[in-house]
């Protein structure tokens, strides 16, 4: 990956103003050293300029900073980056399942690049491999072949612990069946990713997101006390709370009536656009797909461009 260090200094100052997505550096320490010309402490979307250190620092010093900030994940250290940088890359990814003597090819040499801020719709019939693609992209499933690059890092080489950390820092999931934990209240479900990442007091951020998704005043309800639409709002808030670069949404309206589904889609796309994250949306719903920047069709594990958006 090429990196124009000359470009960095002005760009980083514009991050908060234009809401440009920022990439949490997850490179090896070597690449951090070589790439990190400017390190800034971004807190609550505001860059503390005085904390910025420029490349006059030695490589060793930069590494010291990096390690320090690595241990403070919520005062996230970010790198400014070229706006064309990809968030997710799938290189010739294949995945097969065995059921008895039958082998099912869910993904067949899939190639995909998702850029920051991009909204992609994945279309395809049931069993075409949409969910598998999302699972592989999110590190929930290991591909049989190929590489998955998430935020510049090949996640197929990570162990379970590293994968978990990668997921909680880079990805937000939204599922068809909401997948909320029934023992936790709405706000507890939302704050969970932050808690898992070591955030001590995540309640405020979680409550604010719930407020933004229209669930103010319902924070302490358990999932069983919420409607389907409300549960999906909680799930979206949970996906966004850790400020990920990539949202993977698997049929987020599949379990909702069309009116509620439309509201949920509006909210999801709006929230995703606000945060500047990329969204990969698996859906059967053409109207949902029309909101996407690109639509891709999966059939028998093979990925191709779809004409759905033009229809």
């Amino acid at each position: 990956m090429s990196f124009n260090t000359e470009f960095l200094a002005p760009d980083i100052l514009t991050v908060p103003e234009r809401g440009s997505p920022a990439l949490t550096a997850k490179h090896s320490t070597v690449s951090v050293c070589s790439l990190t010309a400017v390190l800034c402490d971004v807190r609550e979307q505001e860059i503390e300029i005085e904390q910025c250190r420029t490349r006059e620092l030695s490589c060793e010093r930069r590494l010291t900073y990096w390690r320090h900030y690595e241990r403070k994940p919520h005062r996230t250290v970010r790198l400014a980056f070229e706006s064309t940088l990809s968030v997710l890359e799938l290189h010739s990814v294949s995945k097969r399942f065995h059921r008895g003597e039958e082998t099912i090819t869910a993904l067949d040499s899939a190639q995909l690049t998702v850029r920051a801020g991009e909204l992609i719709a994945l279309l395809g019939p049931s069993g075409s491999g949409k969910s598998t693609l999302l699972h592989v992209a999110g590190g929930l499933e290991t591909p049989d072949e190929g590489r998955v690059i998430l935020a510049g890092e090949d996640i197929t080489r990570l162990n379970a612990g590293q994968l978990a950390r990668s997921r909680r820092r880079h990805i937000g999931f939204v599922f068809q069946f909401f997948q909320l934990l029934p023992a936790l209240t709405a706000v507890e479900n939302v704050e969970l990713p932050l808690l898992l990442d070591g955030e001590r007091r995540p309640r405020r951020a979680a409550a604010r997101l719930l407020e933004r998704t229209g669930l103010g005043g319902r924070e302490d309800r358990f999932p069983g006390e919420l409607s389907g639409g409300e549960m999906q709002r909680v799930a979206i808030a949970r996906a966004l709370v850790a400020n990920p670069q990539l949202i993977l949404a698997d049929e987020p309206t599949g379990n909702l009536d069309s009116a509620t589904g439309a509201v949920i889609m509006d909210m999801l796309t709006e929230q995703v656009r606000d945060t500047g994250a990329a969204l990969v949306l698996a859906t059967h719903d053409p109207s949902a797909a029309r909101r996407a920047d690109r639509a891709l069709l999966l059939r028998d594990g093979a990925l191709s461009a779809s004409a759905a958006l033009d229809a």
Binding site: G138, G161, A164, R167, Q179, L192, L196
Partner: peptide, 13 residues
């Protein structure tokens, strides 16, 4: 399933 959800959200093993 709950554990799977937790893992998907980034809970370490």
């Amino acid at each position: 399933k709950e554990n799977a959800i937790l893992a998907a959200l980034g809970a370490a093993p």
